[in-house]
Design a binder for these strands. Structure first.
Lengths: 225, 225
DNA sequence: CCAAAAGTGTTGTAACTACACCCATGT
DNA sequence: ACATGGGTGTAGTTACAACACTTTTGG
């Protein structure tokens, strides 16, 4: 198949990715936000993102933005495209289409970056974020919905935790993402019945009864759609 | 916010939409395919689609392609973006990103179009399609999965049928999309218990006992995600 | 012995599965 | 009368929600 010229009516647009990266901290679902260093919307909070480079795959671009624009030191545990935002007026610079991605990072260090694009990066409460640039509030809303779907559907909750964890910890992940409280006994029954966890030792964490530690059972990888 | 120039590293790409349009016919789930009239992949079956025009919204482009490239005479009952395919090598003409859409049309007339882009359009079996151009087989696979999800999640099945229909007809929609047989009694219980149908007269269709007709109950619009 | 956190069982209800026969019509 | 398609009920099982007390540790 020989390369051809694109037909004249083919619209040339800017192709971008934005990433809603989530993590748990202190029992709260947090999202990684940056403070923009450039116009438009300079000084405003926004999701990390930027333009896809020539020859770069969409998921590679999402990874790169996550790393360079925010100096995230960890590999995401989950990365998934979830919606494409292409409304004509969404960016004042012109027609820019953004393929939005959902990422899960185990809560780790983020260095603020004082470069041209970004003047800082922070984990902030995902359910009550500050005012966001462009249509990023809509992107975040949709990302949270998708995350809630995935939580039940795949076993994505484990990606928020270290290798070994206790059931109460896992429960707070479900509660923070679902944004509602769960019954301890029913939660345990449900999770243990699913058979995706194997016990491994216990943890003595100061005061209170020690908790059973669990790890993901062998052969139970997260099943993305 | 004043309009700015795009940064130099912004990738200019071709922006396209493709549409997987489904309908029921003779108890079979069918998808609308066209035969390409142009290179690349001339004479090959493909999903209807094409480039987004300047100032045109994504869903508008999907509608336009559905109408002009295939001369579909009906409004789609459902139209939803479901995934964006942007792999670097997916189109030999260059970097072309396609926002794939899922549509449901009540089975209606389609005129073949002998123009530049298309030399024909037909409804073909969705589960056993012919060889398709580009990565359209992957797009179709994903569209069917999404359709199956939506079937349970929203009440999308009604969109495949005319205003009034019988329960056996509705059951064949579920069976064709889910690609498996269902128990008649359980199906009826489930659907009637959901309370989304109201009876309205009966239908005498030749031989056999007349069937109860139903229509969608007032105030039960399809809830898309 | 008190505070703090982990752990545990029962009961009711709703939803789903499997399964086989009778009913109304046209020819 | 028979062929064709439409319609019906029961019993077993499973999944989920509601609910309060006991156990183990550190101070």
């Amino acid at each position: 198949m020989s390369p051809l010229i694109l037909p004249p009516q083919a619209t040339q647009v800017g192709l971008a990715v934005d990433v809603a990266a989530f993590a748990m901290h202190a029992g709260e679902l947090q999202v990684l936000l940056i403070r923009r260093g450039e116009l438009p919307h300079a000084q405003t909070w926004a999701l990390p993102g930027g333009f896809v480079q020539p020859g770069e795959e969409l998921h590679e671009a999402a990874l790169r933005e996550l790393r360079t624009e925010t100096s995230v030191s960890l590999e995401p545990r989950h990365l998934e495209q979830f919606f494409t935002f292409g409304e004509v007026g969404r960016d004042p610079r012109g027609r820019i289409v953004s393929v939005a991605h959902l990422a899960v990072l185990p809560h780790g260090t983020v260095q603020a970056r004082a470069g041209g694009h970004t003047v800082g990066a922070e984990w902030l409460a995902a359910h009550t974020p500050p005012a966001l640039a462009f249509d990023h509030q809509a992107i975040l809303d949709r990302a949270i919905k998708r995350l809630q779907l995935r939580l039940e559907y795949a076993n994505l909750a484990l990606e928020f935790l270290p290798d070994t964890f206790t059931l109460p910890e896992l429960q707070t992940v479900y509660e923070a993402i679902g944004h509602r409280e769960l019954d301890k006994r029913n939660f345990r029954k449900r999770i243990l019945a699913a058979g995706i966890l194997t016990p491994c030792g216990e943890r003595r964490s100061g005061v209170g009864r020690p908790a059973q530690l669990y790890r993901r059972a062998k052969g139970t990888r997260t099943a993305a759609l």
